[in-house]
Simulated scan of single mutants.
Amino acid sequence: MANSKSGETVLERCVRVLEAFDKTHSTLTVSEISRRADLPMSTAHRMVSELVEVGLLDRTEDKRLVMGRRAWEMFARTNPVEELRFRARPVLEGIHSAVQQFTSLAVPQFEDNEVLFIERYTRFGDAKIRATQGGRMDLFDNSNGIIFLAYAPFDVLERVFSEPMVSKTDGKTYDLDVVQDQVEFARRNGYAKITNGMVRENVAYAVPLMGADGHLVAALSVVGKAEECDDDVILTVLAASGNQLSHGDKPLVLPRIPRHGR
């Protein structure tokens, strides 16, 4: 039920408060939440008090706000994204150790034309990386997204290919013909490879993870400086790892994440 002049529900405003937090804003004051969530100060105060009371936000000793432990607890024990991350972690660690380059796990957000990164390993390799854990990128500007487009429904392809491909990550406009060629390559070969992409000196690879019904669930990727990457080694490791996860004892399930993360 809406009870504000804007027509927003209380729940929608609570979500805006929670979405004010991100990797670079992990602790906030009420005034910062008010500004980042675009809420009146009185509304922000009320929302914060209620969220603290139920444990979705916690107060630090200096009175700043952080995401609450109860929020983590509920997410960790029930969210299908966390289950996918848990199952994939040993495989991702193995890839990362074997190829000594940035390794990630991502899921498609077709409703938003985006890729959501849910796990990443950066212990090895010194390439410049734009992906962040819990962060999003467009479907057309990274190797995971190219894999997703290779398996995407027609309406998603039509939407992505009919709009200007301006990356939210680097602000660059991507060429339609180049992206379509990358997608066709992924369809033919079962993996994506991008050179001279977002970071010119990098090369990026990705392979799909499939569910028991043959539908796309996620993608595994490796990114490194081109001079440090061996195609044969990386693709062999990625293919074996993708096959291991896709054909394990328990079928992979695509996490259902609401539009725009809300």
Rank of each mutant, 00 (worst) to 15 (best):
W72N: 12
R70F: 03
S42Q: 10
V107R: 03
N189L: 12
I234K: 13
L18W: 01
L252T: 09
S26I: 01
E114M: 13
M74Q: 15
A98D: 07
V17F: 06
I129E: 08
M41P: 03
F110S: 07
R77T: 15
A226T: 05
R136N: 03
N196V: 08
P164I: 05
S6D: 06
E83Y: 02
P153V: 02
L252Y: 10
S6F: 01
R46V: 00
A204R: 01
E82T: 07
P164E: 02
G145L: 07
P258G: 11
L252P: 07
V183R: 04
K128Y: 15
M41Q: 14
E83C: 04
A239Q: 14
I33T: 07
G261H: 11
I33K: 04
I194R: 00
I147V: 13
I95K: 00
K128D: 15
R77N: 11
P251T: 06
T24A: 12
D112E: 02
A150K: 02
I194H: 05
S4Y: 08
L65E: 01
E201C: 09
Q182I: 00
G134I: 03
K225N: 14
R120P: 00
S241P: 08
R188N: 15
G211R: 06
S162K: 05
R35D: 09
V207M: 07
L254W: 05
F86S: 14
L39S: 02
P258H: 09
A192K: 07
A186Y: 10
D138P: 00
T132V: 14
E93I: 12
K23S: 12
D62T: 08
T9A: 10
K128T: 15
A152E: 03
Q182F: 00
P208R: 05
I146E: 05
S104E: 09
A239V: 10
G261W: 05
H260G: 12
